[in-house]
Amino acid sequence: MNKIIKTIIALPIIAITSIVYIKAKSYFEEYTSDFIDESFYSATLKEDRKIFIRRPRSYDEDKSYPLIIKTDGNFNLEQWDKQLKELGLKGKAEDSIVVAIPNQFWTDTRNRDLVPPYARKDVNIEARPASENDPEIFGRADKFLAFIEKELLPYIESKYPINDNKILTGFSAGGSFVLYTFTTKPELFTGYFAFSPAAWYDKSVVVKEFKKQLPTLTGVPKYLYLSLGSEENEIITGSFQGLLKALEQSAPENIYWGHSYSAGAGHNENPSISIPKAITEYYQFRKKYFPDWKQTALAE
């Protein structure tokens, strides 16, 4: 009898311990990094936000550096670190400060923050009926973009020597956020990388808005890089092809772009393969349209 009682008592304890262990493991994997972890309060989002800051090798406060703002937190952050080091050593890119923004850990904020305000936060393939117009159902990428523009960028620029070479990169929902930023605040960044962008929301409303806004983009040259895994599903592949068609038909003269398909790669594998391709093509663009970079890179 004592054994049975002990077993009955032990089982919930073991279950609770396992849950705590799994949650703690997930926290350290998703919400801490191997770089510099900082948190600050966002008045725009009305919450504390954590960021992971990766500094270049041989970081020197007397030099200025490119800045890469990355959604998706730790996802492929080590690959970014590796590729920036390797391509920098080869003179194919400038080593950069990378600021990765993780999703909030205790609450589900990914779709809230990254889905554009013309698509449903609770993402859906079917088009949104006109009768569904409650603001609460939409993504709030507009607020998240305001957080980046008005709070994150000034915060980073106050602490680190940043130059005007800035890139925004994101994967999946983060890719749709990149497209949203590219068409609404193109002046914030020079380079935009959207890996496997989730442009299929609400019957590809992201594609439709992208195509509508694309011809209005003016000003200094900008570079957009898109990529997709060759093994991704038909829905995301169809929306990706819609983005390419929009660029072919409607991109103004100051917009330069490239794309790739990662052979044999699925949704989660594509970004890691795409990172060196995107960086390399972006710096080829910079050498042509921002020739001072080449001289600076060689001098270093």
Rank of each mutant, 00 (worst) to 15 (best):
I4V: 15
I8T: 07
A10T: 03
T17I: 05
T17P: 04
S18K: 01
S18H: 03
I19L: 14
I22M: 12
K23P: 01
K23L: 13
K25P: 01
S26E: 11
Y27P: 05
E29N: 12
Y31M: 11
S33C: 06
S42W: 02
T44W: 01
R49P: 05
R49C: 02
I51Y: 08
Y59A: 05
Y65A: 09
Y65P: 06
P66M: 10
D72L: 14
N74T: 14
N76Q: 15
L77M: 15
L77E: 13
L77G: 12
D81H: 15
Q83N: 15
L84Q: 14
E94P: 00
D95V: 07
I97C: 12
I97T: 10
I101V: 15
P102F: 09
P102S: 08
N103Y: 13
W106Y: 12
D108A: 10
R112M: 06
L114W: 07
L114V: 07
L114K: 04
V115C: 11
Y118H: 09
D122Q: 11
I125R: 14
S131M: 10
I137A: 11
F138M: 14
F138Y: 15
A141N: 08
K143H: 09
F144N: 01
F144Y: 12
L145G: 06
L145K: 10
A146K: 13
K150S: 07
L152Y: 02
L153T: 06
I156E: 00
S158A: 11
N163G: 01
D164Y: 13
K166G: 05
T169R: 03
G170W: 04
S172C: 07
A173E: 08
G175K: 04
S176C: 08
S176H: 03
F177C: 01
T184W: 08
T184R: 06
E187T: 01
Y192H: 02
Y192L: 01
D202Q: 04
K203C: 00
V207W: 09
K211S: 12
K211I: 02
K212E: 15
P215K: 09
T216M: 07
K222W: 02
Y223V: 03
Y223C: 03
L224R: 03
L226D: 08
S230H: 06
E231P: 02
E231C: 02
E231A: 07
E231G: 00
E232D: 12
E234D: 14
G238E: 12
S239E: 10
F240W: 10
G242K: 09
L243S: 13
L243K: 13
S250Y: 09
A251W: 14
A251Y: 14
P252T: 10
E253T: 08
N254D: 06
N254G: 06
W257F: 12
S260T: 11
S262G: 05
S262W: 04
A263V: 08
A263L: 05
A265D: 10
E269V: 10
N270K: 02
N270V: 03
S274L: 00
S274M: 01
I275C: 13
K277I: 11
A278L: 05
A278Y: 04
E281L: 05
E281G: 05
Q284Y: 07
F285S: 13
P291Y: 10
K294I: 13
Q295R: 11
T296I: 13
A299E: 15
E300S: 13
